[in-house]
Structure formats: C-alpha cells, structure tokens
Design a binder for these strands. Sequence first.
RNA 1: CGGGGAGUGGCUCAGUUUGGCUAGAGCGCUUGCUUUGGGAGCAAGAGGCCGUGAGUUCAAAUCUCACCUCCCCGACCA
Length: 429
Amino acid sequence: MFWSKVFIPTLKETPKEAESLSHQLLLRAGFVRMLMAGVYTYLPIGLRVLEKIQGIIRQEMNAAGASELLLPALHPLELWQKTGRDKDLGQVMFQFQDRRGRKVSLGPTHEEVITELLKNNLSSYRQLPLILYQIQTKFRDEIRPRFGLIRACEFIMKDAYSFDQDEAGLDKNYQLMYAAYKRVFSRCGLETLITEADSGVMGGKVSHEFMAPSPLGEDIVLVCSKCKLTKAFSRPEIENAAGSSHTGKEGRSSCPNCQLEMEEVNTTEVGHIFKLGTKYSQAMQANFSDSSGQLKPLVMGCYGIGVSRLISAIIEQNNDTDGIIWPSEVAPFDMIILPLDVTNPELMQLANSLYWELKASGLDVLLDDRDERAGVKFKDADLIGVPASIIIGKKSIDEGNIELRIRKDKSTQVLPKDSAVKLITKWKN
RNA sequence: CGGGGAGUGGCUCAGUUUGGCUAGAGCGCUUGCUUUGGGAGCAAGAGGCCGUGAGUUCAAAUCUCACCUCCCCGACCA
C-alpha cells in the first residue's frame, strides 16, 4: 500500500484525552480515534492489526476443531429472562424497545443465544462433541470505560462454546482450548500468566484467566519465582489484607509450595475460559438424546478472548520512547519502504520495483511515497512500529546499496540493491 | 453513582486569580522561495459562536447558577 492512499493521521503531540501509554500510542500513531467514551473507530492501520490478530485466532480455533459462525448482536430480552441473567448483568446491558414495544438488548455476551440455537437444532449425541466460535462486537454499558481499548462499551470479542455429552468430553475440549489460547497469545507476541479464577456471573465451576502483565493492569497476579505458581487477587482484596494486619502482606503472598514470597504483577485480562457445565442447558432445556435414548442437558464450556483489548495489551508490552514495536505476526505491515527523496526518479524507481517484488513474494509492504523530509519519515515509521524499514537514500544508492533497519533494536544493515529482495525475503523467513 | 481534574482553530496550550482594545502562541494545514539521512528556515495566508444554556454588568473566554462532555481514583469485566 502507498502511504499517500492510506489514511494514517499521526500526531506529534499526545492528545489530552489519553493518559495510558498504549492509548496514547494508538492515537498518536493513527490506529484509532474516539467517538465517545468507550467507543472507538479503527482507522485503516488499526483495522489491519485487528485483522492480523483475528487471523491468528481463526487459525488456532480451526486447528482445534472449532468452526466459526456469526450470532446476532440484537437479542430479545426474553431469552435473557430465561436464565435470569438480565438481572445479574443489570445496567451493563444496553436495553431498549423496538417500535412494537418488544424489549431487546445489544448482546454483552452470547451464552443464551448459542444455547437457544443448539436447543432447537441439535438433538443427538451423534452430533457431539462440537465447538463453535465467533468474532463479534459486544456491547456493555460499562460503569466506567477506561484506558481506550482496554475497557470499551463496544468491543470485539472472540467467544467460543463447546458442547459435550459429559464432563469427560468437556475436560478434553477445555484442554484443547487452553492449549490453543497459549498459542494465540504467544503468536501475538504477548506474555501471559495463567491463573485459576472465579467464574463470576458466567457461572460454572472451573475457569482460567489469561493475564497479560502491563503497568495499567487492573488485576494483580501473584507469581512464585521458583515453581511459577500463579494466584489471582483483586486489588481491593490485597489492599484490605494489607490494611488489616502489619504482617498480612508477607504471610498472604508466600507460595504454598515453596514458602517463598510471591511477586505481585499488574495484569490485564485478555482471555478467560470456563467450564460451564449444564447451567445454561438446564435453564433453557437444551437437551440431547444419549446412546441409550435418554434425554440429557448439554455439557458446556465457553472461551473468550478480548480481541480489541489485545491490541492495547500488545502495545503495553512492545514499545519504546519512539513508538510501538509490533511483534511480526500482528504488525500492520511487514515492512515499510522509505525513499528519502520522492522527487528523485532514480530513488523512486528503485522504491517501486522493490515494492512490487516484495509484495509478489507475499509480504505486506507500505511505501512511504509522501513528499516529506527524511526525518519525518523515520519518526513516523518508528511511531507506527513496522518491524523493518527499507531505506532508499542517495548516499547508499550511489554505492549500489540500500539499508535494512530493524525497528526492535534499531540496527541497520547495508544490502546491495540488486540482491536486496532475495536477502530481505530470506531474512524474513 | 461518589471523589478529583479539565473543556479556548485539527493537536498541545497561554489568557480567567484582579471583567475592558480586533482572543494569542507553537505544531499541523495552504501558497511561494530556500533547504533536504532523524519531526527544516523565511515570507504570505486560511482556520475560533472561548463546551451549552440562563443570569449579573455599560461591558463576560474571564463573575454566578444549571447542564453536557472528556480524563483520573473506587465497584464491574474480555
């Protein structure tokens, strides 16, 4: 793509509306813009990152045997009344009436809708096990939207649901999802801590949270440096405990295995998996016939990833003073070509031919064709965080060379221009 | 919802305490000239109902009241 054709409104100064680092960088680098508190536009390069993340998720979900569908965002409120969760979620649900006076809601999550679907369309154990997932916009009227994409009122979530005959089947699918989640986050360049957690309004017994360490994390995870045991604590719990006794802090945060003091890490929740059991299927009578012809409730699990939130979590872990440093798999582009003088036909010709050759070899390439000074291009390239730059300037081209600059460590290597494409594609793989 | 901060060209802010010229600066934008390897220089321009409404006053960005919006701290969550 050509910079001049993509809308990338970068900012020199930090907008006042943002205080958290990832939010500032998202705004400055031209990835998102706010419409109202907790509601964001994904600009072209923001959307590209979103799509890369979704691509990774789709690959890993499909590889785990899940299949994708798309459920409605608009729900009849009656469905929620069946499980009583309209009350549990309360004000968090956006609710209104259609012109006939029917009460509807914008979906904050989809257990009821998918259970309703399966109740009406699945009847035999022969159709089990089954994992379905979607990537969709959720709506939650949050008490306080915060930190840009981290807590938004309209956000994108991947939610998967597994259906089994029994607990043994659920265990198997749960493990499958657990493993898939680890791969998703690692491919996104994200370090995560996994903790056993409370199921909250989702119900069910077992659940694990995938927590990304980040300075603006709202949850604290305790980690044992020796055995890597993790424990989740909400902040108030910690503060109350610390306040209630002088020695409370040390005693509470020692590892039950090693007796060593555990380290407190601030984290953001990016994924959460639950064994739901039959909570929803019983409430909604989503049953199937087992091999002996007996009617049984579906045994369910549900598995969420905060897709849009991931963008922020990744930036929190991958940045420096010059801007974002995208991990390669989620970067909006693999590389950016910087012809330092667009009025020089020789430079532009080389820039263009490199662009088309690299593109033909399967790379996502951005060509900065703007008539800007070299400094501006360098600064913007660093800010938007493309992993590699190909610098085409008069200095090196006169010697028959171009430069390859790596964003992460700011190292530069000189490459002969004639074999540049070969060397770059080789370096990439 | 409770507590704290803030609303002035696209962005960052000054001016408000102590009301008074035609509301300013930097960045960005437009045009021209010069420059050209890390956010260039000079010159000339465009762009504002000072968050909204009501009030006080000869006079309001500035004082009073109400409301709206955004950010931060708490309960909530992917």
